[in-house]
Design a protein around this nucleic acid. Structure first.
Length: 458
RNA sequence: UCCUCGGUAGCUCAGCUGGUAGAGCAGGUGGCUGUUAACCACCUUGUCGGCGGUUCGAUUACGUCCCGGGGAGCCA
């Protein structure tokens, strides 16, 4: 039975016989033996293996080992006489499990550009940076669940195939069993598998509300799909979203939860992925750890949309797009506020009703809604949420005003007809969180298999 | 989708005003008693993103399409 390298590296060199299994990163020959750097993905560090020339297969196997070969090695853990590692493995047996022809294997023992690695999506987790991203992503996911579970939230698996659009959330991918050219002019809707138009979910929020109004505090954490033709370093056609929804909760409670959750996740990752975070801090974004500690160490800033507009109009800075009440804040405005004015996460609340979806609760002024966006330096909007409209009449009127047929959403309106309560929730793009935590510039590097317009290789 | 900059060896890039290309790394061979971006010597590698036109001749200038970077819109 082999041991994971991360556990081995944390063991004292007892001289015990152990086995590791992993992939060769580099081989260095020195006179009578070779150094092998073996990585198994359990941690950033490799284990250094000493393979002596007296090993039976030294000439025919070990001296032919190159980057990417898989090996199984039995040996004794010993203290390393040289600097660079505390322990090393003195090999007693080196078995080559799978060769990797160096003439064609694309990965080298040097740095590659992320653009190049994206072309070999299936091999890139074998690199330091992408491996670190994978571990941090996994830990973050765990932290999200831990955070909610500790607070008694119930996880709800909302549907991936849905027939209700979450208005304002972007274009849906259609789900259909009918072939594009096989319709032969028949009534297509009647042939639909679900008897009506269906698509991949753009948000689990509406269904999460269903369970919030039965179970109190719930959350969803699953894949989400947007058929938008957006080509940026912050957008994916398939991404993961975290959406808590709380009954008997207002915007204030919603904001508090979002802030606590972000702080919990950042702290957890810094505590549990120190080695990987060190890599990001050194090579990906200088000052990353300081930035993250700045987020966990102070309260988020708060400003209303109206105050933000006044502030932007009076700041003396000229923007490409003019700032005017009633028009949504542009990226440049959000960046200015979070990066230059506050220099920390900023929560903007109470947006004009006209630019927000129908389900957001109308404030007493009749012009704004109880919405909140959390803007984070470098990423922009990372959280979007609101208190939901719990008043039947107001909600129905808002739906009609938005051109939505209330009959289509009768199930949603029923939640207000029977035992309605004030409730609130938010959506957090998981990949944007991973981006913020790792400092990775492009969102395509923080999801294992990115999907963007024209790109879905495997 | 729009603006903008790019696409040259396996990778990262150089190539002035049109005359079919080069450096580092990687890879191969040999050397080296502890290396860790190993080191030293020698060697190999190209439909110059695709297509079309201009030209005696296009990697270079033109048109178009594809892909990537940066920015914008949409948003998470």
């Amino acid at each position: 039975m082999h041991l994971r390298i991360n556990t081995l590296l944390n063991q004292p060199p007892t001289g015990e016989k152990v086995e590791v299994a992993g992939w060769i990163r580099t081989r260095r020959d020195t006179g009578g033996f070779s150094f092998l750097e073996v990585n198994d993905g359990s941690c950033l560090a490799n284990i250094q293996v000493i393979a002596d020339k007296d090993l039976v297969n030294y000439e025919q196997d070990i001296k032919r080992l190159t980057t990417g070969c898989s090996v199984r090695i039995e040996g004794t853990l010993q203290a390393s006489p040289a600097k660079g590692q505390a322990v090393e493995l003195l090999a007693g047996r080196v078995e080559v499990v799978g060769w990797a022809d160096p003439e064609t294997y694309p990965l080298q023992k040097k740095r590659h550009s992320f653009e190049f690695l994206r072309e070999i999506t299936h091999l890139r987790p074998r690199t330091n940076a992408l491996g670190a991203v994978a571990r941090v992503r996994s830990r973050l996911s765990f932290a999200v669940h831990t955070f909610f579970q500790k607070r008694g939230f119930i996880q709800v698996h909302t549907p991936i195939i849905t027939t209700s659009d979450c208005e304002g959330a972007g274009e849906m991918f259609q789900v259909s069993t009918t072939r594009p050219h096989g319709g032969a002019g028949k009534a297509e809707a009647a042939e639909e598998f679900f008897g009506r138009r269906a698509g991949l979910t753009v948000s689990g929020q509406l269904q999460a509300e269903v369970y919030a109004l039965a179970m109190g505090d719930v959350y969803t954490f699953g894949p989400t799909f947007r058929a938008e033709n957006s080509n940026t370093s912050r957008h994916l056609a398939e991404f993961w979203m975290i959406e808590p929804e709380m009954a008997f909760c207002d915007l204030r409670g919603n904001m508090r939860l979002a802030e606590e959750m972000l702080k919990y996740c950042l702290t957890d990752v810094m505590d549990n992925c120190a080695e990987d975070m060190e890599l990001f801090d050194r090579f990906i974004e200088k000052g990353l750890l300081e930035k993250l500690r700045g987020v966990t160490g102070q309260d988020f800033a708060h400003i209303t949309y109206t105050e933000a507009v006044e502030r932007l109009q009076g700041c003396g800075k000229t923007f490409e797009f003019a700032v005017q009440w009633g028009i949504d804040l542009q990226s440049e405005h959000e960046r200015y506020l979070s990066e230059e004015v506050y220099k920390r996460p900023l929560i903007v609340t109470d947006y004009p009703a006209a630019i927000k979806p129908f389900y957001m609760r109308v404030n007493d002024d009749g012009k704004t809604v109880a919405a909140m966006d959390i803007l984070v330096p470098g990423i922009g909007e990372i959280v979007g949420g609101s208190q939901r409209e719990e008043r039947y009449d107001v909600l129905e009127a808002r739906m009609r005003a938005a051109g939505i047929d209330p009959a289509e959403y009768s199930w949603y309106l029923d939640l207000r007809r029977y035992g309605s309560v004030p409730h609130a929730g938010f959506g957090l793009g998981f990949e944007r969180l991973v981006q913020f935590v790792t400092g990775m510039a492009n969102i395509r590097e923080v999801i294992p298999f990115p999907r963007t317009p024209g790109f879905a290789p495997c």
